[in-house]
Amino acid sequence: MTTCTTMRSAVMLSAGLFLAGSLMLAFAEFTGWAVPASQLALLLVLGAAVTLVVAVLIALWPGNARRLTECLH
C-alpha cells in the first residue's frame, strides 16, 4: 500500500543515492582508485534516477493518485 510516508522515503532515498554518487565521484577524482570509484558513483547516480522514476510511476497509478492527494506537502 502506497502512503505518504513511503513516497517521502523513496524521494529521500533517491536524494541520498544521488548525494552519495556525487561524493563518490569527487572521491574518485582525488584518489588512485579512479575506475572502481567512478563506476560505483555511476551506479549510485543511476540508482537514484531509477528510484525516483519508480516513485513517480507508482504515484501516477490511478488508485494511488487518489490516496496521495491527501498528503500534506
Rank of each mutant, 00 (worst) to 15 (best):
11 V>H: 04
11 V>L: 09
11 V>Q: 05
12 M>G: 00
12 M>S: 12
13 L>T: 12
14 S>K: 05
15 A>Q: 08
15 A>S: 06
15 A>R: 06
16 G>A: 04
17 L>Y: 05
17 L>R: 11
18 F>P: 00
18 F>M: 14
19 L>S: 07
19 L>H: 01
19 L>R: 04
20 A>Y: 07
20 A>K: 03
21 G>P: 05
21 G>S: 03
21 G>Q: 08
22 S>N: 13
22 S>C: 14
22 S>V: 15
23 L>P: 07
24 M>R: 13
25 L>W: 08
25 L>I: 09
25 L>T: 14
26 A>Y: 10
27 F>D: 12
27 F>G: 08
27 F>K: 12
28 A>T: 11
29 E>Q: 14
29 E>D: 14
29 E>P: 00
29 E>W: 14
29 E>C: 10
30 F>A: 07
30 F>S: 09
30 F>H: 07
30 F>Y: 08
32 G>A: 11
33 W>Y: 11
33 W>D: 08
34 A>S: 12
34 A>E: 14
34 A>F: 15
34 A>I: 11
35 V>L: 15
35 V>N: 12
35 V>H: 13
35 V>E: 14
36 P>D: 05
36 P>W: 06
37 A>V: 13
37 A>T: 15
37 A>E: 09
37 A>F: 15
38 S>H: 15
38 S>I: 15
38 S>K: 15
38 S>P: 13
39 Q>G: 10
39 Q>I: 15
40 L>C: 10
40 L>E: 08
41 A>V: 09
41 A>P: 08
42 L>A: 14
42 L>I: 13
43 L>W: 09
44 L>P: 08
45 V>M: 12
45 V>D: 01
46 L>V: 05
46 L>D: 03
46 L>F: 13
47 G>R: 02
47 G>A: 11
47 G>E: 02
47 G>I: 05
47 G>V: 05
47 G>S: 10
48 A>E: 03
48 A>K: 02
49 A>W: 07
50 V>A: 15
50 V>S: 09
50 V>L: 13
52 L>Q: 06
52 L>W: 06
54 V>G: 01
54 V>P: 00
55 A>I: 01
56 V>D: 00
57 L>K: 01
57 L>A: 02
57 L>G: 01
57 L>P: 00
57 L>S: 00
58 I>L: 11
58 I>G: 01
58 I>D: 05
58 I>V: 12
58 I>R: 12
59 A>G: 02
59 A>T: 03
59 A>S: 06
60 L>I: 08
60 L>H: 10
61 W>Y: 09
61 W>C: 00
62 P>V: 07
62 P>Y: 02
62 P>S: 05
63 G>K: 10
63 G>M: 04
63 G>C: 03
64 N>A: 10
65 A>D: 07
65 A>E: 10
66 R>H: 08
67 R>N: 04
67 R>H: 10
68 L>F: 07
69 T>S: 06
69 T>P: 00
70 E>D: 08
70 E>C: 00
